[in-house]
Design a protein around this nucleic acid. Structure first.
Lengths: 208, 208
DNA sequence: ACAACTTGCAACACCAATGACGCAAGTAGG
DNA sequence: CCTACTTGCGTCATTGGTGTTGCAAGTTGT
Protein backbone atom coordinates (compact mmCIF):
# COMPACT_ATOMS: atom_id res chain seq x y z
CA UNK A 1 0.00 0.00 0.00
CA UNK A 2 1.32 3.41 -0.89
CA UNK A 3 2.70 5.37 2.07
CA UNK A 4 0.28 7.87 3.53
CA UNK A 5 -2.79 6.03 2.40
CA UNK A 6 -5.52 5.68 4.99
CA UNK A 7 -7.60 2.75 6.08
CA UNK A 8 -10.55 4.88 5.13
CA UNK A 9 -9.70 4.46 1.47
CA UNK A 10 -10.37 0.73 1.86
CA UNK A 11 -14.04 1.03 2.65
CA UNK A 12 -16.84 2.71 0.76
CA UNK A 13 -16.20 6.26 -0.28
CA UNK A 14 -19.61 7.28 0.99
CA UNK A 15 -18.33 7.96 4.51
CA UNK A 16 -15.95 10.78 5.32
CA UNK A 17 -12.43 10.19 6.69
CA UNK A 18 -11.99 9.14 10.29
CA UNK A 19 -10.43 11.31 12.91
CA UNK A 20 -6.86 10.40 13.85
CA UNK A 21 -7.77 8.60 17.07
CA UNK A 22 -10.53 6.66 15.40
CA UNK A 23 -8.20 5.47 12.68
CA UNK A 24 -5.76 4.35 15.33
CA UNK A 25 -8.57 2.38 16.97
CA UNK A 26 -9.36 0.66 13.69
CA UNK A 27 -5.78 -0.50 13.31
CA UNK A 28 -5.62 -1.62 16.93
CA UNK A 29 -8.75 -3.67 16.45
CA UNK A 30 -7.49 -5.32 13.29
CA UNK A 31 -4.17 -6.20 14.91
CA UNK A 32 -5.92 -7.61 17.96
CA UNK A 33 -8.30 -9.55 15.74
CA UNK A 34 -5.36 -11.02 13.84
CA UNK A 35 -3.71 -12.18 17.05
CA UNK A 36 -6.91 -13.49 18.60
CA UNK A 37 -8.30 -15.25 15.54
CA UNK A 38 -4.87 -16.61 14.79
CA UNK A 39 -4.97 -18.53 18.05
CA UNK A 40 -8.66 -19.44 17.81
CA UNK A 41 -10.54 -18.86 14.55
CA UNK A 42 -13.84 -19.16 16.41
CA UNK A 43 -13.04 -16.37 18.86
CA UNK A 44 -15.94 -14.04 19.64
CA UNK A 45 -16.17 -10.33 18.97
CA UNK A 46 -16.05 -9.90 22.73
CA UNK A 47 -12.64 -11.58 22.91
CA UNK A 48 -11.35 -9.52 20.03
CA UNK A 49 -12.56 -6.32 21.66
CA UNK A 50 -10.93 -7.32 24.94
CA UNK A 51 -7.64 -8.05 23.16
CA UNK A 52 -7.82 -4.63 21.53
CA UNK A 53 -8.61 -2.96 24.84
CA UNK A 54 -11.88 -1.46 23.61
CA UNK A 55 -15.56 -2.05 24.25
CA UNK A 56 -17.35 -4.57 22.10
CA UNK A 57 -19.69 -1.88 20.83
CA UNK A 58 -16.72 0.06 19.49
CA UNK A 59 -15.73 -2.88 17.34
CA UNK A 60 -19.24 -3.01 15.94
CA UNK A 61 -19.15 0.73 15.36
CA UNK A 62 -16.15 0.36 13.06
CA UNK A 63 -17.04 -2.99 11.54
CA UNK A 64 -20.78 -3.42 11.28
CA UNK A 65 -20.64 -7.23 11.19
CA UNK A 66 -18.12 -9.93 11.79
CA UNK A 67 -17.92 -10.52 8.04
CA UNK A 68 -17.00 -6.91 7.39
CA UNK A 69 -14.15 -7.19 9.87
CA UNK A 70 -12.80 -10.38 8.33
CA UNK A 71 -13.05 -8.96 4.84
CA UNK A 72 -11.30 -5.75 5.85
CA UNK A 73 -8.49 -7.75 7.42
CA UNK A 74 -8.16 -9.89 4.32
CA UNK A 75 -7.96 -6.85 2.07
CA UNK A 76 -5.42 -5.17 4.31
CA UNK A 77 -3.24 -8.26 4.53
CA UNK A 78 -3.44 -8.93 0.81
CA UNK A 79 -2.37 -5.39 0.08
CA UNK A 80 0.64 -5.80 2.35
CA UNK A 81 1.44 -9.02 0.53
CA UNK A 82 1.29 -7.27 -2.81
CA UNK A 83 3.59 -4.53 -1.54
CA UNK A 84 6.01 -7.11 -0.19
CA UNK A 85 6.28 -8.80 -3.58
CA UNK A 86 6.48 -5.55 -5.47
CA UNK A 87 9.30 -4.28 -3.27
CA UNK A 88 11.44 -7.14 -4.54
CA UNK A 89 11.19 -5.80 -8.13
CA UNK A 90 10.31 -9.28 -9.39
CA UNK A 91 10.75 -8.47 -13.08
CA UNK A 92 13.84 -6.31 -13.11
CA UNK A 93 16.08 -7.85 -10.45
CA UNK A 94 18.01 -11.03 -11.22
CA UNK A 95 15.60 -13.92 -10.64
CA UNK A 96 17.40 -15.48 -7.70
CA UNK A 97 17.84 -12.13 -5.99
CA UNK A 98 14.20 -11.25 -6.50
CA UNK A 99 13.14 -14.66 -5.25
CA UNK A 100 15.16 -14.24 -2.10
CA UNK A 101 14.02 -10.68 -1.53
CA UNK A 102 10.37 -11.49 -2.14
CA UNK A 103 10.56 -14.49 0.15
CA UNK A 104 12.02 -12.51 3.02
CA UNK A 105 9.50 -9.70 2.56
CA UNK A 106 6.53 -12.01 2.35
CA UNK A 107 7.67 -13.96 5.39
CA UNK A 108 7.70 -10.76 7.41
CA UNK A 109 4.13 -10.02 6.40
CA UNK A 110 2.91 -13.56 6.77
CA UNK A 111 4.27 -13.85 10.28
CA UNK A 112 2.20 -10.88 11.40
CA UNK A 113 -0.90 -11.47 9.28
CA UNK A 114 -1.05 -15.22 8.87
CA UNK A 115 -4.70 -15.63 9.75
CA UNK A 116 -5.91 -12.81 7.54
CA UNK A 117 -3.89 -14.05 4.60
CA UNK A 118 -5.24 -17.55 4.93
CA UNK A 119 -8.82 -16.36 4.92
CA UNK A 120 -8.01 -14.03 2.04
CA UNK A 121 -7.79 -17.00 -0.31
CA UNK A 122 -11.47 -17.76 0.15
CA UNK A 123 -12.57 -14.15 -0.25
CA UNK A 124 -13.85 -12.49 -3.36
CA UNK A 125 -13.97 -8.80 -4.03
CA UNK A 126 -11.15 -6.39 -3.39
CA UNK A 127 -8.70 -8.85 -1.87
CA UNK A 128 -9.26 -11.32 -4.70
CA UNK A 129 -8.47 -8.61 -7.24
CA UNK A 130 -5.23 -7.72 -5.46
CA UNK A 131 -4.32 -11.35 -4.94
CA UNK A 132 -4.74 -12.10 -8.62
CA UNK A 133 -2.06 -9.50 -9.34
CA UNK A 134 0.28 -11.10 -6.82
CA UNK A 135 -0.15 -14.53 -8.34
CA UNK A 136 0.56 -13.04 -11.75
CA UNK A 137 3.79 -11.49 -10.52
CA UNK A 138 4.85 -14.72 -8.82
CA UNK A 139 4.25 -16.80 -11.89
CA UNK A 140 6.30 -14.36 -13.94
CA UNK A 141 9.13 -14.66 -11.47
CA UNK A 142 8.95 -18.44 -11.44
CA UNK A 143 9.02 -18.47 -15.23
CA UNK A 144 12.10 -16.27 -15.28
CA UNK A 145 13.72 -18.51 -12.70
CA UNK A 146 13.06 -21.52 -14.87
CA UNK A 147 14.33 -19.84 -18.07
CA UNK A 148 17.59 -18.98 -16.39
CA UNK A 149 18.03 -22.57 -15.27
CA UNK A 150 17.73 -22.12 -11.54
CA UNK A 151 14.57 -24.17 -11.49
CA UNK A 152 14.65 -27.47 -13.34
CA UNK A 153 12.82 -27.33 -16.65
CA UNK A 154 10.95 -30.57 -16.04
CA UNK A 155 9.18 -29.61 -12.81
CA UNK A 156 5.45 -28.99 -12.96
CA UNK A 157 4.96 -25.23 -12.42
CA UNK A 158 1.82 -25.82 -10.40
CA UNK A 159 3.60 -28.24 -8.11
CA UNK A 160 6.51 -25.82 -7.80
CA UNK A 161 4.26 -23.00 -6.71
CA UNK A 162 2.44 -25.20 -4.26
CA UNK A 163 5.67 -26.46 -2.73
CA UNK A 164 6.88 -22.90 -2.42
CA UNK A 165 3.68 -21.82 -0.70
CA UNK A 166 3.78 -24.84 1.59
CA UNK A 167 7.34 -24.10 2.67
CA UNK A 168 6.39 -20.47 3.18
CA UNK A 169 3.47 -21.48 5.33
CA UNK A 170 5.52 -23.93 7.33
CA UNK A 171 8.36 -21.49 7.91
CA UNK A 172 5.90 -19.13 9.61
CA UNK A 173 4.59 -21.69 12.08
CA UNK A 174 5.97 -21.62 15.59
CA UNK A 175 7.35 -18.13 15.12
CA UNK A 176 5.79 -15.80 17.63
CA UNK A 177 4.75 -12.47 16.18
CA UNK A 178 7.14 -10.65 18.48
CA UNK A 179 10.46 -12.05 17.24
CA UNK A 180 10.03 -11.26 13.57
CA UNK A 181 13.24 -9.25 13.30
CA UNK A 182 15.35 -8.92 10.20
CA UNK A 183 17.87 -11.61 11.09
CA UNK A 184 15.21 -14.23 11.66
CA UNK A 185 13.31 -13.64 8.46
CA UNK A 186 16.54 -13.54 6.46
CA UNK A 187 17.69 -16.81 7.96
CA UNK A 188 14.28 -18.34 7.32
CA UNK A 189 14.27 -17.16 3.72
CA UNK A 190 17.72 -18.60 3.14
CA UNK A 191 16.77 -21.94 4.63
CA UNK A 192 13.51 -21.97 2.70
CA UNK A 193 15.04 -21.30 -0.71
CA UNK A 194 17.88 -23.72 -0.06
CA UNK A 195 15.37 -26.43 0.72
CA UNK A 196 13.23 -25.49 -2.25
CA UNK A 197 16.11 -25.77 -4.70
CA UNK A 198 18.35 -28.48 -3.22
CA UNK A 199 15.96 -30.49 -1.12
CA UNK A 200 17.16 -32.32 1.97
CA UNK A 201 18.80 -35.36 0.42
CA UNK A 202 22.42 -36.05 -0.47
CA UNK A 203 23.46 -35.33 -4.08
CA UNK A 204 24.20 -39.00 -4.85
CA UNK A 205 22.49 -41.20 -2.29
CA UNK A 206 23.49 -44.85 -1.98
CA UNK A 207 20.42 -46.91 -1.24
CA UNK A 208 21.97 -49.02 1.49
CA UNK B 1 -6.63 -50.08 14.23
CA UNK B 2 -6.66 -53.84 14.46
CA UNK B 3 -9.16 -55.59 12.18
CA UNK B 4 -12.37 -56.55 13.85
CA UNK B 5 -12.18 -53.86 16.48
CA UNK B 6 -15.34 -51.86 17.00
CA UNK B 7 -16.01 -48.17 17.33
CA UNK B 8 -17.55 -49.04 20.65
CA UNK B 9 -14.13 -49.79 22.06
CA UNK B 10 -13.18 -46.16 21.55
CA UNK B 11 -15.68 -44.74 24.00
CA UNK B 12 -16.26 -45.51 27.65
CA UNK B 13 -16.57 -49.15 28.52
CA UNK B 14 -19.61 -48.44 30.65
CA UNK B 15 -22.01 -48.83 27.71
CA UNK B 16 -22.65 -52.11 25.98
CA UNK B 17 -21.78 -52.70 22.30
CA UNK B 18 -23.98 -51.14 19.62
CA UNK B 19 -26.18 -53.11 17.33
CA UNK B 20 -24.85 -53.56 13.80
CA UNK B 21 -27.02 -50.87 12.25
CA UNK B 22 -26.23 -48.39 15.00
CA UNK B 23 -22.52 -48.89 14.52
CA UNK B 24 -22.99 -48.29 10.80
CA UNK B 25 -24.79 -45.08 11.64
CA UNK B 26 -21.90 -43.93 13.81
CA UNK B 27 -19.45 -44.46 10.97
CA UNK B 28 -21.74 -42.74 8.50
CA UNK B 29 -22.00 -39.74 10.80
CA UNK B 30 -18.25 -39.48 11.29
CA UNK B 31 -17.61 -39.71 7.55
CA UNK B 32 -20.25 -37.09 6.84
CA UNK B 33 -18.83 -34.87 9.56
CA UNK B 34 -15.36 -35.19 8.05
CA UNK B 35 -16.64 -34.12 4.63
CA UNK B 36 -18.82 -31.33 5.95
CA UNK B 37 -16.35 -29.87 8.43
CA UNK B 38 -13.60 -30.23 5.88
CA UNK B 39 -15.41 -27.77 3.64
CA UNK B 40 -16.58 -25.53 6.47
CA UNK B 41 -15.14 -25.97 9.98
CA UNK B 42 -18.03 -23.94 11.40
CA UNK B 43 -20.72 -26.21 9.98
CA UNK B 44 -23.63 -26.94 12.30
CA UNK B 45 -24.72 -30.27 13.70
CA UNK B 46 -27.80 -29.91 11.49
CA UNK B 47 -25.67 -29.74 8.35
CA UNK B 48 -23.63 -32.73 9.48
CA UNK B 49 -26.78 -34.70 10.17
CA UNK B 50 -28.16 -33.79 6.76
CA UNK B 51 -24.94 -34.86 5.07
CA UNK B 52 -25.15 -38.17 6.90
CA UNK B 53 -28.77 -38.62 5.95
CA UNK B 54 -29.96 -38.88 9.54
CA UNK B 55 -31.95 -36.71 11.91
CA UNK B 56 -30.10 -34.19 14.04
CA UNK B 57 -31.31 -35.89 17.19
CA UNK B 58 -29.66 -39.12 16.08
CA UNK B 59 -26.32 -37.40 15.93
CA UNK B 60 -26.82 -36.15 19.47
CA UNK B 61 -27.85 -39.62 20.52
CA UNK B 62 -24.50 -41.04 19.43
CA UNK B 63 -22.34 -38.04 20.30
CA UNK B 64 -23.68 -36.20 23.32
CA UNK B 65 -22.01 -32.91 22.45
CA UNK B 66 -20.20 -31.40 19.51
CA UNK B 67 -16.93 -31.80 21.39
CA UNK B 68 -17.46 -35.50 21.85
CA UNK B 69 -17.96 -35.87 18.10
CA UNK B 70 -14.81 -33.93 17.25
CA UNK B 71 -12.77 -35.83 19.78
CA UNK B 72 -14.05 -39.17 18.52
CA UNK B 73 -13.16 -38.20 14.96
CA UNK B 74 -9.69 -37.11 16.04
CA UNK B 75 -9.08 -40.37 17.85
CA UNK B 76 -10.34 -42.41 14.94
CA UNK B 77 -8.21 -40.52 12.43
CA UNK B 78 -5.12 -40.66 14.60
CA UNK B 79 -5.51 -44.39 14.97
CA UNK B 80 -5.72 -44.78 11.20
CA UNK B 81 -2.60 -42.65 10.92
CA UNK B 82 -0.77 -44.87 13.37
CA UNK B 83 -1.83 -47.96 11.44
CA UNK B 84 -0.69 -46.39 8.19
CA UNK B 85 2.77 -45.75 9.59
CA UNK B 86 3.00 -49.13 11.26
CA UNK B 87 2.07 -50.93 8.05
CA UNK B 88 5.25 -49.56 6.48
CA UNK B 89 7.39 -51.44 9.05
CA UNK B 90 9.39 -48.30 9.69
CA UNK B 91 12.15 -50.00 11.67
CA UNK B 92 12.70 -53.22 9.75
CA UNK B 93 12.30 -52.21 6.11
CA UNK B 94 15.13 -50.37 4.34
CA UNK B 95 14.74 -46.68 5.27
CA UNK B 96 13.91 -45.40 1.80
CA UNK B 97 11.39 -48.16 1.20
CA UNK B 98 9.75 -47.53 4.55
CA UNK B 99 9.69 -43.81 3.90
CA UNK B 100 7.99 -44.32 0.57
CA UNK B 101 5.54 -46.86 1.92
CA UNK B 102 4.66 -44.77 4.95
CA UNK B 103 4.20 -41.69 2.81
CA UNK B 104 1.83 -43.41 0.44
CA UNK B 105 -0.15 -44.94 3.30
CA UNK B 106 -0.41 -41.72 5.24
CA UNK B 107 -1.47 -39.82 2.14
CA UNK B 108 -4.34 -42.20 1.65
CA UNK B 109 -5.54 -41.59 5.20
CA UNK B 110 -4.92 -37.88 5.15
CA UNK B 111 -6.91 -37.40 1.98
CA UNK B 112 -9.97 -38.94 3.58
CA UNK B 113 -9.53 -37.61 7.11
CA UNK B 114 -7.75 -34.31 6.64
CA UNK B 115 -9.96 -32.27 8.90
CA UNK B 116 -9.96 -34.73 11.76
CA UNK B 117 -6.20 -35.13 11.61
CA UNK B 118 -5.66 -31.39 11.70
CA UNK B 119 -7.82 -30.97 14.78
CA UNK B 120 -6.15 -34.00 16.33
CA UNK B 121 -2.99 -31.97 16.85
CA UNK B 122 -4.75 -29.68 19.31
CA UNK B 123 -6.40 -32.51 21.21
CA UNK B 124 -5.24 -34.13 24.37
CA UNK B 125 -6.28 -37.48 25.69
CA UNK B 126 -6.48 -40.65 23.63
CA UNK B 127 -5.50 -39.14 20.28
CA UNK B 128 -2.53 -37.33 21.84
CA UNK B 129 -1.29 -40.61 23.28
CA UNK B 130 -1.55 -42.36 19.91
CA UNK B 131 -0.04 -39.42 18.09
CA UNK B 132 2.98 -39.36 20.38
CA UNK B 133 3.70 -42.91 19.30
CA UNK B 134 3.47 -41.94 15.66
CA UNK B 135 5.90 -39.05 16.11
CA UNK B 136 8.27 -41.41 17.86
CA UNK B 137 8.16 -43.87 14.96
CA UNK B 138 8.65 -41.09 12.42
CA UNK B 139 11.64 -39.68 14.21
CA UNK B 140 13.19 -43.14 14.35
CA UNK B 141 12.68 -43.51 10.64
CA UNK B 142 14.17 -40.11 9.90
CA UNK B 143 17.18 -40.96 12.05
CA UNK B 144 17.72 -44.21 10.16
CA UNK B 145 17.38 -42.32 6.89
CA UNK B 146 20.05 -39.88 7.98
CA UNK B 147 22.42 -42.61 9.25
CA UNK B 148 22.26 -44.35 5.92
CA UNK B 149 23.08 -41.14 4.10
CA UNK B 150 19.85 -40.58 2.27
CA UNK B 151 19.21 -37.44 4.24
CA UNK B 152 22.07 -34.95 4.49
CA UNK B 153 23.75 -35.05 7.88
CA UNK B 154 23.75 -31.27 8.24
CA UNK B 155 20.01 -30.68 7.98
CA UNK B 156 18.15 -29.70 11.12
CA UNK B 157 15.95 -32.70 12.05
CA UNK B 158 13.17 -30.42 13.22
CA UNK B 159 13.18 -28.51 9.94
CA UNK B 160 13.28 -31.79 8.04
CA UNK B 161 10.22 -33.09 9.80
CA UNK B 162 8.37 -29.85 9.30
CA UNK B 163 9.17 -29.75 5.60
CA UNK B 164 8.01 -33.33 5.28
CA UNK B 165 4.73 -32.55 7.04
CA UNK B 166 4.26 -29.43 4.95
CA UNK B 167 4.71 -31.33 1.70
CA UNK B 168 2.40 -34.02 2.96
CA UNK B 169 -0.24 -31.45 3.79
CA UNK B 170 0.17 -29.70 0.46
CA UNK B 171 0.02 -32.89 -1.55
CA UNK B 172 -3.43 -33.57 -0.09
CA UNK B 173 -4.90 -30.24 -1.08
CA UNK B 174 -7.05 -30.09 -4.19
CA UNK B 175 -7.49 -33.85 -4.22
CA UNK B 176 -11.15 -34.68 -3.93
CA UNK B 177 -11.90 -37.50 -1.53
CA UNK B 178 -13.32 -39.61 -4.33
CA UNK B 179 -10.25 -40.05 -6.50
CA UNK B 180 -7.89 -41.38 -3.87
CA UNK B 181 -7.04 -44.53 -5.79
CA UNK B 182 -3.77 -46.38 -5.58
CA UNK B 183 -2.16 -44.86 -8.66
CA UNK B 184 -2.77 -41.32 -7.48
CA UNK B 185 -1.37 -41.76 -3.99
CA UNK B 186 1.62 -43.64 -5.34
CA UNK B 187 2.34 -40.89 -7.83
CA UNK B 188 1.91 -38.27 -5.13
CA UNK B 189 4.23 -40.11 -2.77
CA UNK B 190 6.88 -40.40 -5.46
CA UNK B 191 6.66 -36.73 -6.32
CA UNK B 192 6.69 -35.77 -2.66
CA UNK B 193 9.79 -37.76 -1.73
CA UNK B 194 11.57 -36.68 -4.88
CA UNK B 195 10.95 -33.06 -3.98
CA UNK B 196 11.90 -33.67 -0.37
CA UNK B 197 15.26 -35.15 -1.27
CA UNK B 198 16.27 -33.40 -4.49
CA UNK B 199 14.34 -30.13 -4.30
CA UNK B 200 13.26 -28.35 -7.45
CA UNK B 201 16.51 -26.69 -8.51
CA UNK B 202 19.17 -27.82 -10.95
CA UNK B 203 22.16 -29.71 -9.51
CA UNK B 204 24.65 -26.99 -10.45
CA UNK B 205 22.80 -23.75 -11.07
CA UNK B 206 24.49 -20.92 -12.85
CA UNK B 207 23.41 -17.66 -11.31
CA UNK B 208 22.86 -15.77 -14.56
C1' DA C 1 -12.70 27.62 23.56
C1' DC C 2 -15.97 25.37 20.94
C1' DA C 3 -18.04 22.25 17.82
C1' DA C 4 -17.67 17.82 16.09
C1' DC C 5 -16.31 13.48 16.80
C1' DT C 6 -15.33 9.24 19.45
C1' DT C 7 -15.70 6.06 23.20
C1' DG C 8 -17.58 3.28 27.21
C1' DC C 9 -21.44 1.65 29.32
C1' DA C 10 -25.82 -0.37 30.02
C1' DA C 11 -29.63 -2.21 28.18
C1' DC C 12 -32.24 -4.45 24.71
C1' DA C 13 -34.10 -7.59 21.00
C1' DC C 14 -32.94 -11.35 18.28
C1' DC C 15 -31.62 -15.53 16.50
C1' DA C 16 -29.32 -19.64 15.43
C1' DA C 17 -27.30 -23.54 17.49
C1' DT C 18 -27.28 -26.69 21.17
C1' DG C 19 -28.89 -30.32 23.86
C1' DA C 20 -32.79 -33.03 26.02
C1' DC C 21 -37.50 -35.45 25.84
C1' DG C 22 -41.06 -38.80 24.78
C1' DC C 23 -43.42 -41.42 21.54
C1' DA C 24 -44.62 -44.05 17.44
C1' DA C 25 -42.80 -46.67 13.64
C1' DG C 26 -39.33 -49.48 11.87
C1' DT C 27 -35.38 -52.87 12.07
C1' DA C 28 -31.97 -56.43 13.80
C1' DG C 29 -31.06 -60.73 15.43
C1' DG C 30 -31.75 -64.76 18.27
C1' DC D 1 -41.79 -64.42 15.48
C1' DC D 2 -40.85 -61.75 19.33
C1' DT D 3 -38.10 -58.83 22.04
C1' DA D 4 -34.98 -55.27 22.37
C1' DC D 5 -32.89 -51.79 20.06
C1' DT D 6 -32.75 -47.84 16.93
C1' DT D 7 -34.46 -43.98 14.38
C1' DG D 8 -37.34 -39.90 12.89
C1' DC D 9 -40.14 -36.35 14.31
C1' DG D 10 -42.03 -32.80 16.93
C1' DT D 11 -41.25 -30.08 20.78
C1' DC D 12 -39.14 -27.63 24.29
C1' DA D 13 -35.75 -24.79 27.20
C1' DT D 14 -31.42 -22.67 27.31
C1' DT D 15 -27.58 -20.28 25.97
C1' DG D 16 -24.17 -17.50 23.89
C1' DG D 17 -23.07 -14.52 20.26
C1' DT D 18 -24.68 -10.74 17.36
C1' DG D 19 -26.06 -6.33 16.30
C1' DT D 20 -28.54 -1.85 17.82
C1' DT D 21 -29.49 2.27 20.44
C1' DG D 22 -29.14 6.33 23.62
C1' DC D 23 -26.58 8.97 26.56
C1' DA D 24 -22.84 10.88 29.31
C1' DA D 25 -17.95 11.67 29.45
C1' DG D 26 -13.79 12.37 27.16
C1' DT D 27 -10.86 13.68 23.01
C1' DT D 28 -9.48 16.07 18.63
C1' DG D 29 -8.67 19.66 15.76
C1' DT D 30 -9.43 24.27 14.38
Amino acid sequence: MAPGSSLWAMSEVTARPLRADAERTVRTIMEAAERTLGRNPAATMEEIAAAAGVARTTVHRRFATRDVLITAMATWATQQLADAVEAARPESSPPLVALYQATANVLRVKISWGFSMNTAFAQDGESARIYAGVVERCDQLFRRTQEVGILRADVDPVWARRVYYALMHEACQNVSTADADEADTDALATQLIDTLLRGLGTPNPQLT
